[in-house]
Amino acid sequence: MKRLIIDCDPGNGIAGANVDDGLALALAIASPDIALEMITTVAGNTPVDVGYRVAQDLLNRLGLTIPVYKGESQALQEPPEPWRQALDQRVHQLNLTHLWQGVRQPLAQDTPTHDAVDAIGQLICDHPGEITLVAIGPLTNVARAMQRYPQLAESVAEIAIMGGVFALDDYLKDTNFGLDPEAAHQVLTSGANITLVPMDVTTQTLMTHQDLDRIAKIDKPLARFVTETFRPWIDYSMKTRNLSGCWIHDALVVAWLLNQRVASATDYLADVELRPGPTRGKSWRYRQPLRVDVGIQQPAGGMVHVLQTVDNTLLLSMLEQALAASEY
């Protein structure tokens, strides 16, 4: 059984916010091979307070007492205002808030007394080699934890990250790395055992309304949570991304930990551009030996295991089977 911390920025039930974090949480909760020991939230897809409210509300609905801690509210250096404008206001600018009409809002929650950064660092360092950290938002919490707990990189069993984009025509950067490039750089080059799930592979995933219809037939709280929060997001993705459904980025990270047949992967040296300009926050990767290495000090970047292709049929099957078999 894998012992997990999930560090995330969920937006289920929030107009215009991505819902894939919630699906990753649902898969982890539903899977008997995973012990989800802690959830932490970070500013990203949603502000950190909103993400905390989404995660705690889900657990309250299920009657679960998994600890949830609120983490960093802004990046190490990147100014938050342009990102919050883009992430929080676009649904209003497009006049698509009506898609969430009737969707249950996550209830307000009491503020936790313990800090997510310390909670991450303490649990991992107190149990070396036993905890897998699933980081599916910006890496601010993880970077801060590494700063406070220098032994974290060698103590964590694995850090499975959703972030980065290498070669998609419509993207120079993704939200997770773009919102906090310094944190992404620090984590990727930390020497920890890292699996990276970039947008290059997650945009090969797809969930349609027809796929969701099958989940809707499962009469259990987790399946109902997925169904009600994914309906408007699929419609929103179809209107704004010209898709026939929606991508399920973060769920692939948890699915990979459960069954590595769901994707293929290759080792690369990888890092993130930090310099000002249009490529700030862009991720890059390469394998040695380079055919042209002039001006490059070897090796540059950190060695990471990068997912490349996905079996979307298997991914959807894993999700459906886990939700159907879950006691929640």
Score class of each variant (00 low, 15 high):
1 M>R: 14
4 L>Q: 04
15 A>K: 05
15 A>D: 10
30 A>G: 14
30 A>T: 11
42 V>N: 08
44 G>P: 05
53 R>L: 06
57 D>S: 11
59 L>I: 07
60 N>H: 03
62 L>P: 05
66 I>N: 05
68 V>D: 11
68 V>Q: 11
72 E>I: 10
80 P>T: 05
84 R>L: 15
89 Q>E: 11
91 V>D: 07
101 Q>N: 15
105 Q>I: 03
105 Q>R: 13
105 Q>S: 11
105 Q>Y: 15
117 V>P: 12
117 V>A: 08
127 H>W: 07
128 P>K: 06
130 E>N: 05
136 I>S: 08
140 T>I: 07
140 T>E: 02
141 N>Q: 12
143 A>P: 09
151 Q>R: 15
159 I>L: 02
160 A>I: 03
167 A>M: 02
170 D>L: 14
178 G>L: 02
181 P>H: 01
181 P>F: 04
183 A>H: 08
184 A>M: 02
186 Q>W: 09
187 V>L: 11
189 T>W: 00
189 T>A: 02
190 S>Q: 05
192 A>S: 13
194 I>Q: 00
196 L>A: 04
200 D>G: 03
204 Q>F: 13
209 H>T: 14
211 D>G: 13
212 L>T: 04
213 D>S: 03
222 L>Q: 03
222 L>Y: 07
226 V>C: 03
227 T>I: 13
237 S>F: 09
239 K>Q: 12
251 A>Q: 08
252 L>Y: 09
254 V>M: 09
254 V>C: 13
256 W>L: 11
257 L>E: 01
258 L>M: 01
258 L>G: 01
274 L>K: 01
281 G>T: 03
286 Y>C: 05
286 Y>I: 07
287 R>F: 02
291 R>C: 06
298 Q>C: 12
298 Q>L: 15
300 A>Y: 12
310 V>C: 15
312 N>C: 09
320 E>R: 02
325 A>F: 15
